[in-house]
Nucleic acid binder design. Structure first.
Length: 852
RNA sequence: GCCCAGGUGGCGGAAUUGGUAGACGCGCUGGCUUCAGGUGCCAGUGCCCUUACGGGCGUGGAGGUUCGAGUCCUCUCCUGGGCACCA
């Protein structure tokens, strides 16, 4: 008897699939297509268990759909632009392109042994000049269609590195590398007009039933539609040109409680006042904090009185002070608000800090007390008792009061109702080298001029260094120099590159025609689009997916995608992370020291270091991270156990949408199980073909039930539950004494049902049992409904909702008879203690409950 | 701070529309095989009381709806994720 040896078995079958071109996707209008896509990876150089899980899930879907007769498209590529390549160049020298392509080669070599059913002929990287040239042509088409413009936007500027920093690179207001205080700076930025699509992107979510509810909710909140009042305050003492101050509020019902107005430090009025050194100093300080919403919300609320005042629109005699406040965002609304401290916690904190007045507009209907240190903010649909209403009923809800205020403002002409979105336009300019150059030219005579399509790509120069601060494109001796496409005069190239989210916003469309000279090909897009199943991490729930939805619309408007592709992802699945325990000890000074899994051992006495026997603290279920040393390298796992074990384990232990904890014991158990299945196959092959067996029918019934259950679970993405059924069936088969032909049928069906998860082992079993062709190409087994029926049922019998016994009854026994048999049970008689039951509930085919 | 998700045995988790809580796996315990280098097989395993029969308690906590709640409702605690230049 030979041993289960994945190291020899797996490469053999990968070669067989290759030779059969089994996963090569060809357009074929006579067959239904199925496009399954996993979010493509960033080429960091090493695959991790998260990749294994993500791509295994996609592979299960792809292989299953292939077996169900679909023409499957399952491609792979690389999200290859981005900061890490530049950081590597800075730290180690070399060029980002070399680093990136070497990483891609390494990662591809690590992925291939997983045996994924990928059409590798369609592979590309977003940093390929062929890809970004087409992205530049899309940009020009978008520009032409009015979907792109330039606007000033606020960025994190590191004055030492002379570069713009990502939010994650700003730590406590300082640059992560330089340690220099970061400044908020306004720069001209290219932006996509995604906010023009805000309403549409929001409304369309409604129909996207095959997206997770929470992702749709997160996107809806992100887009953030609100209805409010916009109006202008008349100002007193403001500089020339600032006669009115436009404000926006979603709570105009609290206007009578307004006690101050506040503007963003980036508001034009604030800038106009910077002649005052105190104001200039305040604004400079405010701009020093990060630009993220989180940083603004968490920062202490501070402000400065400008000395300017505004007139209350309904009580012209009342004047409100105008403050500059650090928590007002220039990007939202008009960058100016009126503050009503009684009904907004931030405004209240601010008012208490600076001694501003607090006026209650309404109080709770029961025990309504004036506001002290907690703002009164009940749900808008709740009736409240109005102290400062504007003619609406004394117990109106905020919703009613808001509508009434807007109506009145419009009737009296001092304000208007406005629907606004929280969603801002998508700023795509990055002052970085390793990205897709924005194909425009700055001409001293013609201004901003698009590059001509025949000159694309605007290619990144290779002769650059990263040893000085700033963007290498800015300081390149010749790259910027060009001629203006309009007037032919000397001009300069744009040195900003595009946000890498642009690269990933259309790669799924490019996969439908990866070699074409145009971004897409109509026939291919028409046939392959949309992505039937998209799979990726929840961390992309908002940005990547929202940008892609916008991009698909923009590509439709510019003629690159069909109408149906406005929503490019028919179904979305968000998978959880792979986690692992962290092993921690403390050094002499109490600082944490982390240990690799192989450095520790767990016995009855607890977990200890192998080397010293020192006790180790175990922290469960932590995201794998190099600094915590709790990473498991898939390459090592595949070497030791084979790809099928890795695939089986990452699917088996947790529901796909949740995190899975990698454990060495679990991986070993998976390996042992696959070995058992393999030996089972061997045993069945060696059986006497003609010897009589017992229990043929039982085994066949179990087999058909397993087919039905596994199929249902795979359809519902319940891979862990499918695997549980496969375990159970394997146990049944292992104990079966059925005849050889029936056992052979059972093991071959088992191989088929396991094939999406463990494709190599399944091929081997299939071949061993004399199956025809490749199991990967065999049609999916179908359960015989007649074999799923049973003649009798076991019904639990409850007394007052507690299970006390069970009865076995014929399937179609009438309820009255079921009731009689249940009452005849000893346990029922004992609990009734001679009394008649008050009620008996019989749920046919389910349960009997006796109410005593 | 705001938004979202999740809490079920020692562990990962299972459980059509509200209908036998703990499937399946890990771990652990006992036994068999004698395999000496990660073996196989059998049995048991939520907690507590009980020799047994049987009983009580159990899905983060508190209340509620129901013949019946892991599932529905209200409040609450804890953990994880996202927050626009990380990809």
């Amino acid at each position: 008897m030979s041993r289960y040896d994945p190291a020899t078995l797996e490469p053999r079958w990968q070669q067989a699939w290759d030779e059969a071109s089994l996963f090569r996707a060809e357009r074929d209008e006579t067959r239904p297509k199925y496009y399954v896509l996993e979010m493509f990876p960033y080429p960091s150089g090493r695959i991790h268990m998260g990749h294994v899980r993500n791509y295994t899930m996609g592979d299960v879907v792809a292989r299953y759909k292939l077996a169900r007769g679909f023409n499957v498209l399952h491609p792979m590529g690389w999200d290859a632009f981005g900061l890490p390549a530049e950081n590597a160049a800075m730290e180690r020298g070399g060029h980002p392109a070399d680093w990136t392509y070497a990483n891609i080669a390494d990662m591809r070599a690590q992925m291939k042994p997983l045996g994924l059913s990928i059409d590798w002929s369609r592979e590309f990287a977003t940093c390929d000049p062929e890809y970004y040239a087409l992205q530049q042509s899309l940009f020009l088409d978008f520009l032409d269609a009015g979907l792109v413009y330039r606007k000033p936007a606020v960025v994190n500027w590191d004055p030492v590195e002379m570069t713009v920093l990502a939010n994650e690179q700003v730590i406590d207001g300082k640059g992560w590398r330089s340690g220099a205080p970061v400044e908020r700076q306004e720069r001209q930025q290219w932006a996509f007009r995604i906010s023009d699509f805000a309403g549409e992107l929001l409304d369309a979510l409604e129909d996207m039933k095959d997206w997770p509810e929470r992702v749709r909710l997160m996107q809806a909140n992100w887009i953030g539609r609100s209805r409010g009042l916009e109006f202008g305050f008349e100002t007193i003492g403001a500089p020339e040109g600032f006669g009115r101050l436009e404000v926006y509020s979603t709570r105009p019902d609290t206007l009578m409680g307004a006690t101050f107005a506040a503007i963003s430090p980036d508001h034009p009025l604030a800038r106009a006042l910077e002649g005052n050194p105190a104001i200039a100093a305040f604004c400079a300080e405010a701009r020093r904090s990060g630009t993220s919403e989180e940083a603004l919300e968490k920062a202490d609320k501070t402000g400065i009185d400008t000395g300017i005042r505004v007139r209350h629109p309904l009580e012209p005699g009342r004047e409100l002070p105008v403050w500059i406040a650090n928590f007002i965002l220039m990007d939202y609304g008009t960058g100016a608000i009126f503050g009503c401290p009684a009904h907004d916690q931030r405004d209240l904190d601010f008012s208490r800090k600076y001694g501003l007045e607090v006026i209650d507009c309404f109080v709770a209907r029961k025990d309504g007390a004036p506001v002290e240190n907690t703002a009164f903010v009940p749900p808008k649909s709740e009736p409240v008792l109005w102290l400062a209403g504007l003619g609406w009923p004394e117990t109106a809800t905020a919703e009613e009061a808001i509508a009434a205020t807007i109506d009145r403002a419009e009737a009296e002409g001092w304000g208007r109702g406005v629907t606004r979105y929280r969603l801002r336009d998508w700023g795509i300019s990055r002052q970085r080298y390793w990205g897709c150059p924005i194909p425009v030219i700055h001409c001293p005579t013609c201004g901003v001029v698009p590059e001509m399509k025949e000159n694309l790509p605007v290619a990144l120069p290779m002769d650059v260094t990263f040893d000085q601060p700033g963007n290498p494109l800015d300081r390149h001796p010749t790259w910027r120099n060009c001629t203006c496409p309009k007037c032919g005069g000397a001009a300069l190239r744009e040195t900003d590159t595009m946000d890498t989210f642009v690269d990933s916003s259309w790669y799924f469309a490019r996969f439908t025609a990866p070699g074409a000279p145009t971004p897409t090909v109509a026939e291919d897009a028409e046939y392959w689009m949309n992505v039937d199943q998209y799979i990726g991490g929840i961390e992309h729930a908002i940005l990547h997916l929202l940008y892609s939805r916008f991009f698909a619309r923009a590509m439709h408007i510019t003629g690159h995608l069909p109408e149906k592709s406005r929503e490019p992802f028919a179904a979305l699945f968000t998978q959880g992370m792979v986690t692992h325990e962290i092993y921690r000890t403390r050094d002499g000074r109490g600082r944490p020291v982390y240990h690799l899994p192989e450095e520790v051992e767990t016995t009855e006495g607890g977990t200890r270091l192998r080397a010293t026997g020192a006790p180790v603290e175990v922290i469960p279920s932590a995201k794998m991270s190099k600094s915590k040393k709790n990473v498991v390298d898939p390459v090592n796992i595949i070497e030791r156990f084979g790809a099928d074990t890795a695939r089986w384990f990452v699917l088996s232990d947790s529901p796909p949408e949740r995190d899975v904890e990698w454990t060495a014991a679990g991986a070993e158990a998976a390996f042992r199980h696959l070995g058992r299945v393999w030996m089972l196959c061997d045993r069945i092959a060696a059986m006497d073909h003609d010897a009589p067996g017992t229990g043929d029918d039982d085994l066949l019934r179990a087999m058909h039930r397993t087919i039905a259950e596994v199929t249902t679970h795979i359809d519902a993405f319940g891979f862990n539950a499918a695997i549980a059924r496969l375990y159970a069936f394997t146990n049944v088969l292992a104990r079966s004494e059925a005849s050889q032909p029936v056992q052979r049928q059972a093991i071959m069906t088992l191989a088929q049902l396991m094939a999406p998860m463990t494709p190599h082992l399944s091929e081997d079993i299939w071949a061993h049992q004399g199956g025809e062709g490749l199991v990967a190409a065999a049609p999916w087994p179908v359960a015989d409904p007649a074999m799923l029926e049973t003649d009798t049922l076991v019904l639990p019998v409850q007394i007052n909702g507690k299970r006390r016994g069970e009865i076995e009854v014929p399937r179609d026994l009438p309820s009255a008879e079921v009731e009689a048999r249940a009452l005849a049970l000893d346990a029922v008689a004992r609990h009734l203690e001679g009394r008649a039951p008050r009620k008996v509930i019989v749920v046919p085919g389910r349960i009997v409950n006796v109410v005593a």
